[in-house]
Amino acid sequence: MAYLDINNVVKRYEGHTALSGVSMEVPEGCIYGLLGPNGAGKSTLIRIINRIIAADEGTVTLNGKKMTDNDITHIGYLPEERGLYKKMKVGDHIVYLGRLKGMTKADAVASMHWWLDRFDLKEWENRKVENLSKGMQQKVQFIGTVIHRPPLLIFDEPFSGFDPVNAEQLKVEILALRDQGSTILFSTHNMASVEEICQQITLLNHAQVVLTGSVDEVKQQHKKNIIAVQTPDTVEPNPEMFTLLPPDPVRKSDTRIKLAQGVNARDAISWLNERYHLTGFTEVLPSMNEIFIETVKSKNTENNE
């Protein structure tokens, strides 16, 4: 049973359709990647889940119940374009955001202290936001998102603007929140981070879902039956079993073979092992980046035809 269930959501604006029948099931306690090129409809979908805008058709179900306005207290949302009131004090600001999400003042203050401590921002509590560096402001925004410990977290490009050290700290925090049971919807262009932390993904393009599933499944579906073989010998092609591919630009020493139709990897490896000195072999799975580009491009060509 999915924690967040989006069913056939449609949103139209004057002149264009932002979402045309999008469905998505986010299981409880997982990190779910929402991917797609610019203008695919990710932000619109996120705003609908946050009830900032209303869908024209379709339903959003949270924990088995149709979402109402009161459910926004169960969500923490970090938008891609995010800011803070520059003139407010850091502590007051975090407490304000927590109370807007329905916390009592005492709870919000206690939680604020806990998080500021965790991010080493304790001595900044009474400073104005405008005195903070950009990286520190990003941390304050993150704290403002999670202060009320929501069961559902939505991060839109959370790592943009973070340096590698802070990005790593953020990643650790996000994983920790998942381990504590939060469900996390994660929208990004950064495919490397998707491979690192997402279990499942949905790829939107032109207002529609074009790809969905667990990261491993998706990779298996898109694999090209390519094997990278490490050997000091020169491998001759065998057209019945495999063709030779030009070497990988990064790993030049690998010999890359593409299996012919119907040939399984085991047979090819044992065939090679009998003739050459193999030091290692790996099945080459496509990166999420390749899958993303391939899927988006092929769909665009389809649409143009």
């Binding site: 009830r51 926004i72 949302y77 938008p79 800011g83 803070l84 925004q141």
Partner: peptide
Amino acid sequence: EKTNRIVEVVVSSCRP
């Protein structure tokens, strides 16, 4: 509020 982008955070917690 619009230019410093606080607004989207706030309206995700309350009605515009």
